[in-house]
Design a protein around this nucleic acid. Structure first.
Lengths: 222, 222
DNA sequence: GTTTGAATTATTGTATACAATACCTGTATA
DNA sequence: TATACAGGTATTGTATACAATAATTCAAAC
């Protein structure tokens, strides 16, 4: 799969993004064009545009004539972004509740079921992907394509914020019943309930954020 | 003002964006790197990255190995984008209504006053700018920086959508009382009223969109 | 007349050399 | 000791040549 030959830029872009997701690159790290070019076996040109692309997405902070650095999201930024995500996903859920079909509900249910199957606390990436796919699917059913692409952007951004903010994997995850609550509301075709369920779920997902991202004072000795 | 020397890329970017705003470039136009480079007296490199930047913003549609084209926004896209803008600006207005100060209200009032002064139906660009600045200021006061930057993006996008959709300046504009209604609600510190006022205002701004963008059948003869 | 396919053309994609910029470092000077 | 300045270094910014790609044209074959 995915056999279509990628351009160098596209491939550099994907590898960089993957490196962030897998925590190979930490917040604040500088991305030096020549260095990456050597490591990836290409010239500076595609590396440069891949970095710019990450900059446009808000994952990289570029300082003119100085360099590009992986962002260090602040608590405020993270909270604000989640709040926006909550609003837009609520909006989408309301629309979706009105029009969702039986078949679409089955697909969502299958995604929820696979969540627990895929869950592995030593390799959360797949779990995250299923998780985010569920949210995206709900948005897609709304029929508002633009809304859907904004939500997709926000899903990616919040996911990466949480990863950057938690470089040592201190934060714990586990499948919740909240997704099921959302589906049940959608099944009832109740925009209000579905909207509220989504909103609550997203807002609850930044609980305990303040503590993550920092290490115990004595982390070097334990 | 603005004396800081811009990079070539930045300057190309600004000129292209300005050309769209001023309707010098129409929807669907192809942006050819060498051509623009010659016209602007630079090499392909900065032109290329400026175009990519416009692509990331959704103003340009780039087809790999083929070319880049100014988008042709569909009616659906425009409506969906306005709907999202309405939601987010409503959200901002609610936050702003709670905390806006006397001094901030004065600034907003001055902006409204200047709207009628600046209005000139033969050169709407300044009017648009004041208009959008007012919306942005309300968002800024909310204190949610991320929300503010999303709203800024949406203000730009919807503005350009309307411009591209109305290449022959058929659509008519005139100052309304709706902005005053919003400020009055903010003055009362009523989130509900302010939110509704903003929402209504934005939704009403796509009235009559279906007719613009198309020419009368006999436009060649009149 | 339609189809095939090999030149041709238009345009983007990539590598690379060189220019410009901002920071750092160390030395001379007060 | 503090400061100003000159050189050096790390890195990005720009120009340009060449490679790769995809559409187009047009003639040959059926």
């Amino acid at each position: 799969m995915q056999s279509a030959k990628l351009s160098s830029e596209e491939s550099v872009y994907q590898r960089l993004k993957n490196a962030i997701r897998k925590r190979y690159i930490k917040q604040g790290s500088q991305l030096v064009e020549v260095t990456l070019a050597q490591q990836l076996g290409v010239s500076r040109t595609p590396v440069r545009s891949a970095i710019k692309r990450l900059g446009a997405e808000g994952l990289v902070n570029s300082i003119p004539n100085r360099g590009s650095f992986i962002i260090t999201p602040t608590l405020k930024e993270i909270e604000e972004t989640f709040l926006i995500r909550a609003h837009l996903e609520k909006m989408a859920a309301c629309l979706t509740a009105e029009k969702i079909t039986h078949d679409q509900l089955i697909i969502l249910q299958e995604l929820i079921n696979s969540e627990t199957l895929v869950f592995d606390k030593n390799n959360l990436d797949d779990y995250f992907t299923v998780n985010d796919t569920l949210h995206l699917k709900i948005a897609e059913i709304s029929g508002n394509t633009v809304l859907c692409s904004y939500i997709n952007e926000l899903l990616n951004k919040t996911r990466i914020y949480l990863i950057l903010n938690d470089p040592f994997c201190k934060r714990e995850y586990s499948p919740t019943t909240e997704h099921q609550t959302i589906i049940d509301a959608l099944k009832k075709h109740s925009p209000k309930e579905a909207g509220r369920a989504v909103e609550n779920h997203i807002k609850s997902s930044i609980e305990g954020l303040e503590t993550a991202g920092t290490l115990p004072e004595d982390y070097l000795f334990t």
